[in-house]
Computed example of a mutant assay.
Amino acid sequence: MVGFKYIAEQIKDMERSGRGTFVFGFEESHGYLAGTYARDKDGVQAAALLAEAALYYQQVM
């Protein structure tokens, strides 16, 4: 199944059972979710992650 409602459901199951830690999720429509504070795709967070990655690769190249 695809969609953030299913990803959020898995986050809830992981928290409830105490097994595993959610780190990062994405779907085919290019939505991203890092962390558990929001349970839906977050465009601002995705832009920040992209900017952070660009800065990192600029420094190591």
Results as ranks from 00 to 15, higher is better:
residue 2 V to L: 01
residue 3 G to F: 01
residue 4 F to S: 05
residue 5 K to R: 15
residue 5 K to T: 15
residue 5 K to W: 14
residue 5 K to F: 14
residue 5 K to I: 14
residue 6 Y to E: 13
residue 6 Y to P: 07
residue 7 I to T: 13
residue 7 I to H: 03
residue 8 A to T: 11
residue 8 A to S: 15
residue 9 E to K: 06
residue 9 E to F: 09
residue 9 E to W: 09
residue 10 Q to V: 13
residue 11 I to C: 05
residue 12 K to G: 05
residue 13 D to R: 08
residue 14 M to I: 06
residue 14 M to F: 05
residue 15 E to T: 03
residue 15 E to Y: 02
residue 15 E to M: 06
residue 16 R to I: 12
residue 17 S to E: 09
residue 17 S to I: 06
residue 17 S to T: 10
residue 18 G to D: 02
residue 18 G to P: 02
residue 18 G to L: 03
residue 18 G to Y: 00
residue 19 R to T: 04
residue 20 G to R: 03
residue 20 G to W: 05
residue 21 T to M: 10
residue 21 T to S: 11
residue 21 T to P: 00
residue 22 F to Y: 08
residue 22 F to L: 08
residue 23 V to P: 10
residue 23 V to W: 08
residue 25 G to T: 03
residue 25 G to S: 08
residue 26 F to C: 03
residue 26 F to N: 00
residue 26 F to M: 03
residue 27 E to L: 05
residue 28 E to C: 09
residue 28 E to G: 10
residue 28 E to I: 09
residue 30 H to W: 10
residue 30 H to F: 14
residue 30 H to V: 06
residue 30 H to C: 12
residue 31 G to F: 01
residue 32 Y to N: 03
residue 33 L to T: 04
residue 33 L to F: 05
residue 33 L to H: 03
residue 35 G to Q: 13
residue 35 G to K: 08
residue 36 T to S: 11
residue 38 A to I: 06
residue 39 R to E: 11
residue 39 R to H: 12
residue 39 R to P: 04
residue 39 R to S: 09
residue 40 D to A: 08
residue 40 D to Y: 02
residue 41 K to W: 00
residue 41 K to E: 01
residue 41 K to N: 01
residue 41 K to V: 00
residue 41 K to S: 04
residue 42 D to I: 04
residue 43 G to I: 14
residue 43 G to C: 15
residue 44 V to E: 11
residue 45 Q to Y: 07
residue 45 Q to M: 15
residue 45 Q to W: 05
residue 46 A to Q: 06
residue 46 A to E: 03
residue 47 A to Y: 04
residue 47 A to D: 13
residue 47 A to T: 11
residue 48 A to Y: 14
residue 48 A to K: 14
residue 49 L to I: 13
residue 49 L to S: 07
residue 49 L to K: 01
residue 49 L to T: 04
residue 50 L to R: 02
residue 50 L to K: 04
residue 51 A to E: 02
residue 51 A to F: 04
residue 51 A to H: 01
residue 52 E to R: 07
residue 53 A to M: 09
residue 53 A to Q: 07
residue 53 A to G: 02
residue 53 A to D: 09
residue 54 A to Y: 01
residue 55 L to G: 06
residue 55 L to N: 01
residue 56 Y to T: 13
residue 56 Y to S: 14
residue 58 Q to I: 06
residue 59 Q to T: 12
residue 59 Q to I: 09
residue 59 Q to C: 09
residue 60 V to H: 15
residue 61 M to F: 11
